[in-house]
Nucleic acid binder design. Structure first.
Lengths: 343, 343
DNA sequence: CTCAAGCTTCAAACCGCTTTGGATGACTGT
DNA sequence: ACAGTCATCCAAAGCGGTTTGAAGCTTGAG
């Protein structure tokens, strides 16, 4: 499909050199010629072959996203679609392509090396960082610009990242419930190897500590963030001798599960039990309206995608701009799922 | 990053030709040489530059996925992540790259032409087909292999597709409720411009017709498939003078909304009201267990992704294998959300 | 009128790989 | 000893762009 530069040049009686320069805005082309070339290119519907162009320039004009899929628990991260949508917007504007790899985590070592080795991408976005994630060192070694969506603890190599302030969010959320008189607050967390889960727990524990409340392992749970997971957590915890009166949920989906569990037991949110959830503002799970259904720590993961893309492109184009990082704060929005603890 | 073929050849005292042939399994290389080359390639961590390779071969070794994002209703399709995961598996096995474009539907015309014109992909997967979708003609015109995930009505050009049997699924689902004595069955559908929504409605109407039941516009609704959408539908429909006793939901998320709406009114699923939903088996919205929460027409969208990828790769590699199509049947699994209509 | 300077334009090399069309040499049969 | 096979290997020409170094043609100053 498509005319080549050479053909276009021939049809104009010009050399490929001149046509290339005319189209790429180089100064050494006369105004008249440039106009003529541009017009012809337009009409012939010419667009330069990406592969040839990037072979010649040495830049792939593409960013790689690697999404790990655990072979054990095959969940695809539901926030992925919205993040991608945000990043995609920016790539489109900047003339970059997004290339995606879905890799079973066993093959990860290989996947990154391969992507870079074949020169397929100029930069990489790392999804779903875990605690002490080996990918940071691996990618640093490979010498390619990369940006982590999230962070990874216990890694000493400096690296670029974009994260939300998970710790502060969950501290505030817990604090909020405590201020409402809740003394038994449960944390329904994500998988413990995920770095964000760790930070959230830490914020939660901070708040408990600051209020002089002891933490109770029975009120802390971690797992894959599905609806049934929330449901079970609610059911089981409410049957404890000393059940919680408030819940912190790690995602809207978990919050849905919690609510179902609680409502099946005849408990009403905001009156009998409270929930504060984290809300990534996923487009298909809106939590808005006059009074949002859930009180939530809110941060748009789509916006995060946009920012991450911008940062990575900067890292790619200004090699020495050093590790970049951005910590996005969340807002705590009041919804219908919280109220004072019952006496 | 990375050794080049030439360097590798030089280090071995061989010509690039021989090295290339040795690595690509051509017969005119001695066993000994091949082994030596392979070993060296391994050790040097050599992987061929994708751009150079595809420039030379004329094949991009990449498949493009274009996901449209309406500028009006900015929802990112939640089934997207799982579909992609399935397709990605196959691409990885077959040595193809997946390139993704997120495009506002205003730019679609341009997006496809651009992708093809630059020779960036060998084939394209079309997501979210609408009724009379112009993309089929556009892509046929462009002359690139493509496969539609779903179908589009009122288009005469033959094209390749992979779809689930939406009509039959919803006919069965409606039939099932009717057999249980339900006379007032509501359909909470997706956006009406989406082709799948149209087919589902058609199946639903078939079942009503076959049972001699009149359809009631008050019991049919279409919209973006979010949780609050389901909630509102439930609340509003149950307040009708002659409310439904059964619901057909277009997705798990809608079903969650319905259930919340109903349960807020003190109605119990499977006893007071019934729901049959479509379940795409999204990894983060499981509907399984001994007795699944919802009775559902079930079909794995991840498996659909796998099959779609395989079909498209076949179309790419066997240009004349003609338009391919596959209609996946769904299974109707019995869950806890249905029961006989109350007398 | 001549020559350096300034504009335009171009030929050719190159990016890293594949592939066509030999070339080389060992081996065979006569 | 000689032509004919066969098995190996290689030089060189692309693929479709970019980019370097230089050439052709005007100009204006000397």
């Amino acid at each position: 499909m498509g005319v080549t530069l050479k053909q276009l040049a021939a049809s104009l009686g010009l050399s490929p050199t001149t046509v290339s320069r005319a189209l790429n805005g180089f100064p050494e082309v006369s105004k008249a010629t440039r106009a003529r070339v541009q017009e012809a290119a337009q009409r012939a519907n010419y667009s330069p072959n990406t592969r040839a162009k990037s072979l010649a320039t040495g830049r792939a004009q593409a960013i790689g996203h690697v999404i790990p899929v655990s072979t054990s628990h095959e969940m695809v991260n539901p926030i992925f679609a919205d993040f991608i949508a945000g990043a995609g917007e920016i790539y489109a504007q900047s003339g970059y392509e997004m290339i995606l790899r879905v890799v079973p985590d066993a093959d990860e070592q290989h996947a990154y090396g391969d992507l870079v080795g074949r020169g397929a991408v100029d930069g990489i976005i790392v999804h779903g960082p875990r605690v002490r994630d080996p990918r940071v060192d691996m990618l640093t070694e490979l010498g390619i610009p990369f940006l982590v969506h999230g962070r990874t603890s216990q890694v000493n190599t400096p690296y670029s990242w974009l994260d939300i302030n998970n710790q502060r969010s969950f501290r505030r959320a817990a604090q909020f419930l405590i201020d409402f008189g809740h003394r038994r607050v449960a944390l329904i967390n994500g998988l413990e190897e995920m770095d964000f889960a760790r930070r959230r727990r830490s914020g939660y524990l901070d708040a408990l500590g600051a209020a002089g409340l002891a933490s109770d392992p029975l009120l802390m749970r971690q797992g894959e963030m599905t609806e049934p997971y929330g449901y079970r957590a609610a059911q089981e915890m409410m049957q404890l001798p000393d059940p919680p009166t408030g819940f912190l949920a790690s995602s809207m989906i978990v919050a849905y599960g919690l609510r179902r569990g609680l409502s099946d037991m005849g408990l009403k949110l905001g009156r009998d039990v409270s929930i504060v959830t984290h809300d990534d503002e996923l487009s298909y799970l809106p939590n808005d309206g006059d009074v949002p259904m859930f009180t939530a720590t809110r941060s748009s993961v789509r916006e995060a995608g946009r920012r991450a893309a911008r940062m990575l492109l900067r890292l790619v184009n200004e090699p020495d701009c050093g590790p970049l990082s951005e910590l996005m704060e969340t807002s705590l929005v009041l919804g219908a799922s919280t109220g004072p603890a019952r006496a």
